[in-house]
Design a protein around this nucleic acid. Sequence first.
DNA 1: TCTAACCGTAGTTGAGCTAA
DNA 2: TTAGCTCAACTACGGTTAGA
Length: 371
Amino acid sequence: MSHSVIPPIILNTTLSPFSSRDHGHDNLMGASSDGEAMTLFLNKSGARSEETLRRYEREITRLTAFLYLELGIGYKDVRLKHLQAYLHFIQNLPQRWLMAGILPGQPNRIMFRSSIKSGKSTDQVIDVISSFFSFLEKNRYTLGNPASSLVRSGEKVARGNTIIRYFYDNEWQFIKECLEKLPSATPRERVESARTRFVLSLSYGLALRESELTGHTCSDIHPDNDDGYYLSILGKGRKRRQVPINAALQRGIIDYRRINGYSGLYGDSFPLAPKIRNAEGVITALSARGLRYWWKSFIDYCQSKATPAIKHRLQDLPFHTLRHTALTHLARKMDIEDLAIFAGHDSINTTSQYYHAEASRLKKMAADHHI
DNA sequence: TCTAACCGTAGTTGAGCTAA
DNA sequence: TTAGCTCAACTACGGTTAGA
């Protein structure tokens, strides 16, 4: 393995004066080294937005580190096989690439947090690499674009095959039992138990995203024109939707508000994800981080009561599991168009993921299907 | 019409800090 | 003491845009 020096990463208008691989000035951009070529590319791409610059800098730095440290080659020597090797590499990273100390000159920089998944994430890496080598080719820095033949997976998991983290029926039954048996011996435990029931029933009942739960209050509840109520949710992509609040959920909200000295269902800023501690008598909302902290505590409690099999399954299930579970259950009652509206999905392709839960049903139905 | 290129943002995680 | 906070740096996902 080679230990060539990586070209320094210098952004904005400052050009790198140094690279271990000087290729002369036989190109249209006047770059004399890989470092300069990289900088010129990032200057061009970074002009679009800070986010684009950040992503491009990260991907090109990673690729360059791989080329120099693992293969010992520069940009002009890169061929398709090297890029294919890189994609395999980032999907199966060795441990040392997940720790600091890889990049000379930046000893604290961690190159990867984890291996990159195949599919859309790897495709995004290919996008950047392809754009980079296209730039090098146009400017005659390289003879061709070795990335032009890279195949994006375009991978979209076939309907019914996504791995979605949701509670299986027996697990969901267990979760509900845990909810019923939450400790309530002390005042503190009673307060925490009541909040857990409140937050869980709202999250599940309305299939809310984490940000939607922490970002809305009872002031977002409104009466409809049919003696009912709905929650007006500003969701992902700044899209607003109205989700009906059924009678059972209404009662739950009113009960919990009463415990906390509020009356009625709506009309004030009582949060949907309340903190237990109040600040100067006012109950404010948990942050997203706070919500996860609460979620972990609840799951820890459930795990302490679970059988080994369920305990293992509950491990690492995030808060978002609740939304998946809720939508999975609703998918049994609603048609996909209605469910998409309920969930706030623009496309039913997204909603169709929630039909994964029916895999067991499909298995049963297909059991006798043979010649 | 197709797809490379690009973008916005939700979700995840860890470090370090604060205030009840 | 510790629940819960902010901040930062990421990955994943679901798109849109632009140009061939």
